[in-house]
């Protein structure tokens, strides 16, 4: 197995007295989809926000290609090749596709003006590469469907050199057909082979469909991890519900 692009060792994150992450280990490899699973409040979003430089870890280390790294800001993280697609996507609805695509990283001519035409072309082409033909990149993002917005955010992260693509629940709040669209996009990105994908979801089927490796979080701790073929469906269901046995849950439900 190749060397992991990104590793996390003993990561602890506290918000005041509240321990959101209590020592998390994680390895993500290029060309793999790493599904991060866990109940609401398990700490998934907190973990990826730490990786994205939004939060600073209280303890522990983040390693990029084996080298310890510190992210002071989202800029640091994206410079290190971590591209994050947030749950809320970090898109500006009133702005055009192109303006969103290049937000904060506009292409400038020597005179200081934006190279609008070139930017429109790139936005269009990059989105086409991972699956949508969006005819008018000057259209406002607010008019796009949820699946298209996901694609825009993913295309943007990849274009700006993401080596690790972090997707926080990209399929929630989407209809069936659009969920499949996003999964296809993930597959296409995976096929490139040079990008590691961290995929957060609550959906067992989705993680089975695209996941190569799983990590299960519960109450801020890793309660299970392994490659897809090592983990059985029952084991997976047990871990996804925070480690409780399915039998126990059935009993609990029956007693109501």
């Amino acid at each position: 197995m190749a060397e992991p692009y990104l590793s996390v060792r003993g990561l602890v994150k506290r918000f005041g007295p509240f321990t959101a992450l209590a020592g998390v280990d994680l390895d993500v490899y290029p060309g793999e989809v790493h599904a991060l699973l866990g109940d609401n409040g398990a700490g998934k979003s907190t973990l990826i926000k730490t990786l994205a430089g939004v939060h600073q870890p209280t303890e522990g280390q983040i390693l990029i290609e084996g080298k310890p790294t510190e992210f002071r800001s989202p800029r640091d993280a994206s410079a290190a090749g971590i591209g994050t697609v947030y749950q809320d996507l970090a898109l500006n609805q009133l702005l055009s596709v192109t303006r969103n695509f290049f937000m904060g990283r506009e292409l400038i001519s020597p005179l200081g003006t934006m190279r609008t035409k070139e930017m429109n072309e790139i936005a269009h082409n990059e989105m086409l590469k991972i699956g949508i033909d969006f005819s008018d990149p000057t259209q406002a993002v607010g008019t796009m469907s949820g699946g298209q917005r996901q694609t825009l955010a993913i295309a943007r992260a990849i274009y700006f050199g993401a080596k690790v693509l972090i997707l926080d629940e990209p399929t929630s709040a989407l209809g069936q057909k659009q969920q499949m669209g996003v999964l296809k996009t993930i597959k296409r990105v995976r096929q490139r082979g040079d990008i590691a994908i961290i995929f957060i979801t609550h959906n067992e089927i989705h993680s089975r469909l695209v996941g190569d490796r799983f990590t299960f979080l519960a109450l801020g701790k890793v309660i299970g991890a392994g490659a897809s073929e090592e983990i059985s469906d029952t084991e997976m269901r047990r871990l996804m519900s925070g480690g409780a046995e399915m039998g126990d849950l059935k009993q609990e439900l029956a007693s109501i």
């Binding site: 947030y86 898109l91 500006n92 303006r99 904060g104 934006m114």
Partner: peptide
Amino acid sequence: NRTQLGNWIYATGDNQDSARANGV
């Protein structure tokens, strides 16, 4: 309309959290 700063101004007003997350 023509400069990077212009894009930043729009982005800041529309959704400042996402603008910030993108390095504006």
